[in-house]
Computed example of a mutant assay.
Amino acid sequence: MTMVRRESLAERAAELLITRIRGGEWEIGGKLPGETTLAPQLGVGRSTAREAIRILAGRGILATRQGSGVFVTATDIPESWDALLERADIVAVIEARTAIEVEAASLAAERHTFAELKALRAALDEREQHRSGIGEHVETDMAFHRAIIVAAQSPVLLELFNSFAPRSRQAMTDMLRLRGHHGDDVDQGVHERIYDAIASHDVEAAAGLTRAHLQALKELLN
């Protein structure tokens, strides 16, 4: 029972603190007073004030700097990654894909191993075999592009791609439905050329072909 009350009290203290921050009492970059001063102002004990600070730090409002104190980093709770992706339109998704995949294609051309190239070839062949249904086409297309990210050997790009994948999958499905057709020979040929550029270690061609492909998708929506 005590733990529940303390958590509830800390939440209330956090809400009071963020109200004061939004009211302009501390600007972004401003330093909060120490716990000894802040706790009485919030009407709580030091441990509860400390917990309130932790809550707001977890929400991106405050930041604790060892040996310096607690500072305001935002006045509003940042939108979660999932919420941001959920409301992103198809064009925004393609723009994000461009930022991730153009660099990945360049790095894949430079760094790929024999095993990674073999996996990329297999993904491309799988894409060729599943061009009829939208769902299968999108899945095999994403598998091909993910294989490029893997071949880039960049853990951060791979993490971005993986976290972005569900929204990207839905956006591409929606786009293909709007477009009315998918998986034609021209489209498959573009992916073949991207593969060839990566296989031949042509960094500029791999990046350029990927950018042109995604730009063409974007222009279809205009």
Rank of each mutant, 00 (worst) to 15 (best):
D187Q: 13
D187R: 07
D187M: 12
D187Y: 09
Q188K: 07
Q188Y: 12
Q188W: 08
Q188V: 10
Q188E: 11
Q188T: 08
G189F: 09
G189V: 09
G189I: 08
G189H: 11
H191V: 12
H191R: 13
E192C: 13
E192K: 10
R193C: 06
R193Y: 09
R193I: 07
R193E: 12
R193H: 09
I194H: 00
I194P: 01
I194D: 00
I194N: 01
Y195D: 03
Y195H: 08
Y195I: 04
Y195C: 01
Y195V: 03
Y195R: 01
D196I: 07
D196R: 11
D196V: 12
D196M: 11
A197C: 06
A197K: 00
I198K: 00
I198V: 08
I198S: 00
A199R: 04
A199I: 06
A199S: 13
A199C: 11
A199Q: 08
A199Y: 05
A199F: 05
S200G: 15
S200F: 14
S200R: 15
S200Y: 14
S200K: 15
S200T: 15
H201R: 14
H201I: 06
H201D: 11
H201L: 09
H201F: 13
D202Q: 13
D202R: 06
D202G: 06
V203F: 06
V203K: 02
V203R: 03
E204Q: 14
E204R: 13
A205R: 07
A205K: 07
A205F: 07
A205C: 10
A205E: 09
A206V: 05
A206M: 08
A206L: 04
A207D: 03
A207H: 01
G208P: 01
G208M: 03
G208W: 01
L209C: 06
L209T: 03
L209D: 02
T210Q: 04
T210G: 03
T210Y: 01
T210L: 02
R211G: 01
R211Q: 05
R211V: 02
R211T: 04
R211N: 03
A212H: 04
A212Y: 05
A212D: 05
A212R: 04
A212C: 08
H213N: 10
H213K: 08
H213W: 05
H213F: 10
H213R: 07
L214I: 11
L214H: 05
L214C: 07
L214R: 02
Q215D: 13
Q215Y: 12
Q215I: 13
Q215S: 13
Q215P: 06
A216V: 07
A216W: 11
A216S: 11
A216E: 11
A216P: 04
L217A: 08
L217H: 04
L217W: 03
L217S: 05
L217R: 03
L217V: 13
K218W: 12
K218V: 10
K218Q: 11
K218L: 14
E219L: 14
E219T: 15
E219I: 10
E219M: 15
E219Q: 15
E219P: 06
E219H: 15
